[in-house]
Write a protein that binds this DNA or RNA. Structure first.
Length: 820
RNA sequence: GCCCGGAUGGCGGAAUGGUAGACGCGGCGGCCUCAAAAGCCGCUGUCCGAGAGGGCGUGCGGGUUCGACUCCCGCUCCGGGCACCA
């Protein structure tokens, strides 16, 4: 009888041992090849839920696997500890955000450790720590110095629920806040921005080479939204001294411009509006101001109310004709030049608008016959021969574009232009629980950065949270008042804090040397570990965090604060599927979490880990159904089966002859090594676990069949090694008891190709593509032999009924197909 | 509307164009036991058949191929992303 496996005792003991022995600590002078496996650092919302468990299990498998492969794996952990929930708790009368957050961190850290996931805890990092705040602020000032941070007045997204402005990336396409779900309002405010647009082109171009999920790359491409075209100026007929600038992707359709449109935010509106049109224009401006983005972007509603003639005209440079100048809210002030040439024949929106206002439509591209466009029922935006276009007539779209741009350039009217949808990153937040923006406002000197030696600017502790939701910093006299470091005058401190995505945009660089006192990033250390080799997290961060981090990595490198040649922070990205319960993503805010605690107690961390690895392909979402508990039981049963195998089976006789080289068991072992290794590399954890189960079944079958003890012993040893990354505690305990030594410091087994091929194989014999017989043949069977054996088969002869086969396809030794 | 994913037993899911359903869950049967639990062994897509065996079968309709879950064309449904960005 095997000793009972005391899950609680064994798991706690090994966890302590890995920590005490520093098994997973790495240092700069480590001679092993360095690598970096990282799970996205979490917002500490309390004890782990199954989503965390799944994420950290995947990461831990890779850390342990790569360690056994002989790498020095950097595996750090930290907490994205600033953020709104802590402040909301305080507003509701709870504890101070710091106490609240630190209590949640303790809970999460404890459940992560209980899972048996291994980290170099010396490197633990929390974004609300004074040290991290300081370096966050140092970076902010470097960005300011390099013109990458600036303050500007802009129409911004204001979330009434969160009582703060949001970045564009935090507003969903239906115009609601991604966090609170409230409808976002537009406000004109002075805010801090990071100039991410300076990197738009590079951020887009570099995507191609990244080993990331294609859909994440596509989402980023869409978000950056590059479009190529031309920008040119048009004279205003009634105001010859003024001109407007427009951007178009279709300069080839210039002869079809029958009107032009200014965005309601355009600075020239006042000047070009005639007295007679003043009222109509003002109504549009008023409407646009009042509108939320949702309404403004909605394609619903009558177009008649969405635009107005300004009374002025501009001159179409292509044909010299005056065309009416409108103002309409379908043109955005924040994209391109805030003004467009309108070509209704080749643009759907312009078509609708022209129809609504009775404006002329001139085709410049011949629509294909038998289309709504050919019947003058719709715009045609496709390719085709140009018409009504003088010197572009007959050209296709690409050639016409090229010629039009050259024409604009020669005439000094305009030039080639690339525009991006991406806007600068608005980082100000009117909240308390975030990193203070280290800026003073001086009546004499204006915007003055807090001197580096005065950093960090920390949050005052003695604050009062108002039920109005306003930031308490605005009312904290001690925080608010300061002295201008330049002129000594009384100055006022910036009370906005930074978006928490600023914190998460560089933490992975800080992890390389999180206690460096000289700089935010230790460049030598960062150079050694980065880019991250395996970055694992949810798809929810496809745009926000991952785009900002790519920007920050570049900006830091260019400013000399990070490795200059490091452009991409995450060489490989893996987005695990989420866990759903009741049809919705499992999350604390939805209140449908299944805490892992009871599983730790009942079956242990290993069984829960195995469940997450086995339940389905890691990229896919999984439903936490009633079956989950049964499968977890099954995983627990499987581990018990391995335990009995390791503790009941007699070990090999000392000095006995090595296991036979030709036996099936050894072949099964090496097949499993190859399969499990390849599966771990490609995140195929579910099939890796299946192969381990298969190997276990095979070992039992061999024991019952009386296979030599030495072969069985060898197989069990390899099984435990392969299992070690997935069920680290049981594998370690069983291995130590049976073989002595620490399984996690063993070398990862290597498959010997000699054992991957059997000498006898089952050959499939088909007649007309249907399996009719299976024959045992030598692996090296020749084509002629294979065909002969197949034709001799009783089953085949029955099927053929004496007829001669018309054709025989042989793929020895796997298959022969007889075509009758 | 546009762009991606996906659809396989009762369930989760496996399958470089070559035995569909690995592995597991659930179910059924057997062994062990006084009995149960645990464990071990076997069966488990579906229909016909006592059996041997055979028919059908990877969302639907076509096609390519000796051979298609896999490739191509056209749909249906589900999930996700984008959607006045000129």
């Amino acid at each position: 009888m095997s000793d009972a496996y005391d899950v609680q005792e064994v798991e706690a003991r090994w966890q302590r041992r890995w920590e005490d022995e520093g098994t997973y600590r790495v240092d700069l002078d480590d001679p092993r090849p360095a690598s970096y496996v990282l799970c996205m650092y979490p917002y500490p919302s309390g004890p782990a839920h199954q989503g965390h468990v799944r994420n950290y299990t995947f990461g831990d498998v890779l850390v342990r696997y790569r360690t056994m492969k002989g790498e020095a794996v950097l595996s750090p952990f930290g907490f994205d500890s600033f953020g709104l929930p802590a402040e909301n708790a305080a507003i509701k009368g709870g504890a101070h955000p710091r106490e609240y957050t630190e209590a949640r961190i303790a809970e999460l850290k404890s459940s992560v450790q209980r899972l048996g996931a291994v980290y170099d805890w010396r490197r633990e990092l929390r974004s609300h720590d004074p040290d991290y705040i300081k370096w966050n602020q140092v970076i902010f000032q470097a960005l300011l110095e390099h013109g990458l941070a600036y303050r500007a007045n802009a129409p911004v997204n204001w979330c009434p629920g969160c009582q703060t402005v949001l970045a564009n990336e935090q507003v969903l396409s239906d115009g609601t806040c991604e966090r609170s779900g409230d409808v976002v309002e537009r406000r004109d405010l002075e805010q801090w921005f990071f100039r991410i647009t300076r990197y738009a082109e590079e951020l887009l171009d570099a995507l191609d080479a990244l080993d990331w999920p294609e859909r994440v790359k596509t989402m980023q491409r869409n978000w950056i939204g590059r479009s190529e075209g031309a920008q040119f100026t048009m004279k205003i007929a009634e105001h010859p001294e003024q001109e407007i600038e427009v951007f178009t992707t279709r300069p080839d359709t210039g002869f079809g411009m029958t009107y032009a449109v200014l965005a309601p935010e355009h600075p020239l509106i006042d000047e070009v509006t005639t007295a007679g049109q003043r009222q109509a224009v003002d109504e549009i401006l008023e409407r646009a101001r009042r509108s939320t983005d949702v309404e403004r972007l909605s394609s619903e509603g009558t177009l008649e109310k969405r635009g107005a003639f300004t009374g002025s005209h501009c001159i179409n440079p292509f044909n010299g004709q005056p065309v009416p100048l409108f103002v309409a809210d379908y043109v955005l002030g924040s994209y391109g030049t805030g003004a467009i040439m309108a070509v209704p024949a080749e643009d759907e929106r312009d078509w609708d608008f022209a129809k609504a206002y009775g404006l002329p439509i001139v085709r410049t591209v011949e629509p294909p016959p038998d289309t709504p466009a050919a019947a003058d029922q719709a715009a045609y935006a496709g390719d085709g021969p140009h018409i009504n276009s003088d010197w572009m007539d007959g050209l296709d779209t690409a050639a016409a574009k090229q010629k039009a741009i050259e024409w604009l350039e020669h005439g000094g009217i305009g030039h080639r232009m690339v525009n991006y949808r991406l806007r600068d990153w608005l980082i100000s937040r009117q909240r308390y629980w975030g990193c203070p923006i280290p800026i003073l406002y001086c009546p004499n000197d204006g915007i003055v950065p807090v001197p580096t030696e005065d950093l960090p600017v920390l949050l005052p502790e003695d604050v009062e949270f108002r039920p109005t939701g306003e930031s308490p910093l605005r009312y904290h006299e001690g925080f608010l008042h300061a002295t201008c470091p330049r002129c000594g005058a009384p100055a006022v401190r910036e009370t906005d804090t930074m978006d928490t995505f600023v914190d998460s945009s560089w933490y992975f660089l800080r992890f390389a040397d999180p206690h460096d006192e000289a700089a935010p990033i230790n460049i030598a250390a960062a150079h050694k570990y980065l880019p991250v080799d395996r970055y694992i997290g949810g798809i929810t961060h496809a745009i926000l965090h991952l785009l900002y981090s790519r920007f920050y990595t570049r900006a830091l490198g260019d400013m000399g604060l990070g490795p200059k040649e490091l452009r991409e922070p995450f060489a490989n990205l893996f987005c695990q599927g989420m866990i759903r319960l009741g049809g919705r993503a499992m999350s604390k805010s939805r209140g449908n979490v299944v805490p892992p605690g009871e599983y730790f107690e009942r079956v242990g961390a290993d069984a829960l880990r195995l469940f997450h690895l086995f339940a389905g392909p890691p990229v896919e979402d999984i439903d936490w159904t009633d079956q989950a508990d049964e499968i977890i039981e099954g995983c627990s049963r499987y581990l018990a089966r391995v335990w009995r195998l390791a503790t009941d089976e007699p070990a090999a006789e000392p000095g006995a002859a090595p296991a036979g080289t030709a036996d099936d068991l050894r072949r099964a072992v090496h097949t499993a090594i190859a399969k499990v290794s390849a599966d771990i590399e490609r995140y195929g954890f579910n099939t890796a676990v299946a192969s381990l189960m298969e190997l276990t079944n095979t070992i039992y079958r061999h024991i019952h069949a009386g296979t030599r003890r030495e072969s069985v012993d060898e197989a069990i040893k390899t099984l435990l090694e392969l299992l070690a990354p997935m069920a680290p505690h049981l594998a370690a305990e069983a291995f130590e008891r049976r073989y002595g030594g620490h399984v996690h410091t063993q070398a990862w087994p290597v498959a010997d190709p000699a054992y991957l091929v059997a000498d006898q194989v089952t050959m499939i014999v088909q007649v007309n593509g249907k399996v009719r017989d299976r024959l045992e043949v030598a692996a090296g069977i020749t084509e002629e032999e294979a065909v002969e054996r197949a034709l001799q088969s009783e089953k085949v002869r029955e099927q053929l009924k004496g007829a001669e086969p018309r054709r025989v396809i042989a793929r020895p030794p796997k298959l022969v197909n007889v075509v009758a």
